[in-house]
């Protein structure tokens, strides 16, 4: 099985794919060996992040989006991340419940991941899982984050394109111009647009996008995920975006690789610093603890130390 691992993945062998994802997700030397054997990721399979608050309808929207993409002859892999317990480390992974009807379709692969302690909306191993999926024959890879609040934006460093799902009654027009998660969107989806107040919600999002200071106005699309209304337009815009990024070519792909690498480094570094008890880091942490230094200055000091010594 091992010598033609890459070939098995490219052929779409699901048993190999499922096992390879586990090995990649679990990390360590085995994951490293696996990824080396698979070779570099095929970045022409775009990675699409879908994020938004818990209960916004992300999974249901993905279910409808997968149906639309399949109708357009696209094969789709879905990575659905749910939170892990801060107490037991366990998790109930229930996103795929909403996507059950695609279970028997060979052109769809759905995999549930636990965040395994990750707090930025994704898990630490998701990069490696995506690398395995990019070696497989799926045209698009959708990554559903944990229910995200305002600043769980790690998906930005992982996906080429981000869809942020919003709902009515999620605040006033000031909320709509705040920094954070709304800014990482390439497409803003106003879901549950059958609910009262949804026009107001869409209006607020469009208003925020139309401010003259906004360099990159983002499309706002209304959907009703439970019925599929508006999802055809969403699929159109998404495929347009994925296509244009691939056409614009090397620069964008390199930018995407840089962004993904920076994100992966940040997540690794956080884990490393917490576990490794590096001397410089501990000293600076102690001075923050004693109140001698504000956290921002302390972080800058550590970065200076590391970059100077190199």
């Amino acid at each position: 099985m091992s010598s033609d691992l890459g070939a098995s993945l490219r052929r779409g062998d699901r048993a190999v794919l499922a096992r390879a994802i586990s090995v990649a997700e679990n990390g360590g030397a085995k994951a490293q060996a696996l990824l080396e054997r698979i070779g570099p990721a095929n970045v022409s399979h775009p990675v699409v992040g879908i994020t938004g608050t818990s209960g916004a309808g992300k999974s249901t929207l993905i279910d409808q989006l997968v149906a639309e993409l399949r109708a357009r002859d696209q094969t789709v892999a879905v990575v659905a991340i749910d939170p892990s317990s801060p107490f037991s480390g366990g998790a109930v992974l229930g996103d795929r419940c909403r996507m059950n009807r695609h279970q028997a379709d060979k052109g769809v692969y759905i995999r549930s991941l636990s965040a395994r302690g990750g707090t930025g909306g994704v898990s630490a191993g998701v990069d490696r899982v995506i690398q395995v999926l990019q070696a497989s024959p799926f045209d698009l890879i959708l990554v559903e984050t944990v229910g995200a609040g305002q600043s769980e934006i790690d998906i930005r460093g992982i996906a080429d394109t981000c869809i942020v799902v919003c709902t009515p009654n999620s605040g006033d027009d000031i909320q709509a111009i705040k920094s954070g998660i709304l800014e990482i969107a390439d497409i803003l989806v106003a879901n549950k647009s059958d609910l009262a107040d949804s026009n107001k919600n869409v209006g607020q999002l469009i208003m925020a996008q139309s401010l003259p200071s906004n360099a990159r106005p983002i499309p706002v699309l209304s959907t009703i995920a439970t019925t599929g209304e508006g999802v055809d337009t969403l699929a159109d815009r998404l495929l347009e975006l994925c296509g244009s990024e691939r056409v614009t070519g090397a620069n964008d792909l390199r930018a995407s690789a840089r962004r993904r690498l920076a994100g992966a480094v940040a997540r690794k570094l956080e884990r490393h610093l917490i576990d490794a008890h590096d001397d410089d880091f501990e000293q600076i942490a102690a001075s923050v603890h004693r109140g001698e230094c504000v956290i921002d200055e302390a972080a800058a000091r550590w970065v200076r130390k590391v970059t100077d010594s190199g």
Partner: peptide, 14 residues
């Protein structure tokens, strides 16, 4: 829920 509380990753279906 009990298996979650025992630290397992549970894929739950209807």
């Amino acid at each position: 829920a009990a298996l979650r509380d025992a630290g397992m990753e549970v894929i739950y279906t209807p």
